[in-house]
Amino acid sequence: MGAVDEIVFHQLLHWHHFYDRASGAAGLVSDGLLHAATLSAVVAGLALLADLRRRRTFTPTRWWAAVLLGAGAFQLWDGVVDHKLLRVHQVRYGVDPTGYDVAWIAGAVVLLAAGALLMARARRRPVR
């Protein structure tokens, strides 16, 4: 989810940088660090996926549940901690952020709920 946020809102739409309380150069550096962190998380996730497949314990439902839970957790953290508590950036500048904040956090709740439902379904099934 961090990569989606960084690509869509930082690079394509230019709505904000990861750290907007400094010069444009600092914002670009912070975006680069966020991109490096999200790419590292993707590589680690793919390594875990490969290990599950190698051990023949991969369960698609459990995997997608974990993906949705991780995406929702990132988005909730970003919306509450980064946007509201630390104020490192907002979703969008030059407009009233309330609607964007509500949509961002509601999206996180939807992702978390979908992930939790899938995880509950996966736990009821025996692992192959």
Rank of each mutant, 00 (worst) to 15 (best):
G2S: 09
A3W: 15
A3P: 10
V4R: 10
D5T: 09
E6D: 14
E6K: 11
E6R: 14
I7F: 14
V8P: 08
V8N: 14
F9C: 07
F9G: 08
W15G: 06
W15V: 02
H17L: 02
H17M: 06
F18L: 08
F18R: 00
D20W: 08
R21A: 13
G24E: 11
A25L: 15
A26S: 13
A26K: 10
G27Y: 02
L28K: 13
L28H: 14
L28G: 13
V29Y: 06
S30Y: 00
G32H: 00
L33I: 12
L33G: 05
L33F: 12
L34G: 00
L34H: 01
L34S: 04
L34K: 00
A36C: 06
A36R: 03
A37R: 03
T38F: 11
L39T: 13
V42P: 04
V42N: 02
A44K: 10
G45C: 03
L46F: 10
L46S: 05
L48M: 14
L49H: 08
A50T: 12
A50K: 13
D51F: 11
R55M: 10
R56G: 11
T57I: 15
T61S: 13
T61F: 06
T61E: 15
R62I: 06
W63C: 14
W63L: 14
W64S: 11
A65C: 08
V67M: 11
V67Y: 04
L68M: 15
L69S: 08
L69Y: 05
G70N: 09
G70Y: 06
A71W: 12
G72T: 06
F74V: 00
F74W: 10
Q75N: 06
Q75E: 09
L76Y: 01
L76H: 00
L76M: 08
D78N: 05
V80H: 05
V81M: 09
D82L: 13
D82C: 15
K84P: 00
L86D: 07
V88S: 15
H89I: 02
V91F: 03
Y93Q: 05
G94V: 01
V95W: 04
P97V: 01
P97C: 05
G99S: 04
A103D: 06
W104Y: 12
W104R: 01
W104S: 00
I105N: 07
I105K: 05
A106M: 05
A108P: 02
A108G: 12
A108E: 04
V109T: 11
L112M: 09
L112E: 04
A113H: 08
A116E: 09
A116Y: 07
A116L: 12
L117R: 13
A120G: 07
A120C: 03
R121P: 06
R121K: 12
R121A: 15
A122I: 07
R125K: 14
P126R: 14
V127A: 13
V127L: 15
